[in-house]
Computed example of a mutant assay.
Amino acid sequence: MTRTNWAAITAVVLALLFAGAATVASAGRDDAPRAAATPTADSAEAGFARDMAVHHQQAVEMSFLVRDSTDDEEVRRLAYDIANTQANQRGMLLGWLDMWKLPKVSTGQEPMAWMAEDGGHAGTGGTQGMEGMEGMDHGAHEVRDGSLMPGMATKTELDTLRAVKGKKAEILYLQLMTDHHKGGVTMARGCAELCEVDTEQALAEGMVTAQQSELNLMADLLKARGAKPRA
């Protein structure tokens, strides 16, 4: 079994343990709120899990590409951290979909549509206000050349990353990953606002904090190489 498979299995087990612990803790308190209903296929919880799993998979792919294209320890260390973290988070997201018995691929919903309208939200069954979420609508994103969501690299950009080496690979990776993280932060903020499953909401909030920190680091690494993030 590959290291990635082990990471995914471990993440699923952890997700199940967290869910079980939360249930036991709630059962022990008379004033604890009733557990939210299992998310539906078109809920924010399911939409975030599906879309972020796809988003994360590309980040892992790009990180492995740059690892093999440069000897620079700073960039390789960052790439390893991103690949390891996002592979584990992806395992958790897919594990929740399995636990909820929901499909991992939606054929009837466009990527990030769950951010624009909350369909069948767990625990409420209705819509929530989108105050403070301006700019989070996926509608302005043009799906083209393999870029399904904001921040995702195109197939052409990935081919270029495969071809370049050394400093050029470092700069392109940092620029592509900067765009990728910005898109990921937007999506994670959407789940932090809309998702009602505590563990998933906490994961989304953690993604925002971690990826913002990595955005600052990548800006410094680009500056050290005489480059800057793309406009």
Rank of each mutant, 00 (worst) to 15 (best):
A113V: 00
G123D: 05
D118N: 13
I82Q: 01
A113H: 00
E117F: 11
Y80C: 01
M112P: 01
E134V: 12
L94G: 03
N84G: 03
M92D: 03
D118R: 07
M115N: 00
G108T: 13
P111I: 05
G95P: 07
G132H: 05
Q128F: 09
E131D: 14
R90P: 04
E131T: 11
G91R: 06
A122M: 05
R90G: 15
D98W: 09
M130K: 10
A122G: 02
N88D: 11
T124I: 10
G125S: 14
G123F: 07
L94Q: 03
S106D: 11
G135F: 05
E134I: 12
W100T: 08
D118C: 11
E117M: 10
G120Y: 01
A87W: 04
G132C: 10
Y80Q: 05
G139V: 10
T85G: 04
L94E: 02
G119Q: 11
E117L: 10
G95N: 09
E134A: 15
S106A: 13
A83L: 06
A87V: 06
G126I: 05
A87P: 02
E131R: 05
A113M: 02
G120K: 07
G126Y: 09
M92K: 08
G135P: 02
M92V: 08
D118F: 02
K101F: 09
K104M: 14
Q109G: 01
P103Q: 08
G139C: 08
V105P: 04
E134Q: 15
K101H: 14
W114E: 06
W114N: 06
G120C: 03
T124E: 10
D118I: 05
S106L: 06
A87S: 11
Q109M: 09
D118P: 02
G120N: 07
R90L: 15
K101G: 06
W114C: 03
G123C: 04
E110M: 11
Y80P: 00
D81H: 04
M112I: 07
M99V: 08
D98Y: 12
Q109Y: 03
E134N: 13
V105F: 15
M136W: 01
G91Y: 03
M112F: 12
D81S: 08
G126W: 09
G120P: 02
E110Y: 06
M99N: 14
M136C: 06
Q89M: 01
M133N: 02
G135N: 03
G108Y: 07
A87F: 03
P111H: 04
S106I: 01
Q86D: 08
M130R: 12
G126F: 09
G108N: 13
T127P: 05
E117K: 14
M133E: 02
G125Y: 14
D98F: 13
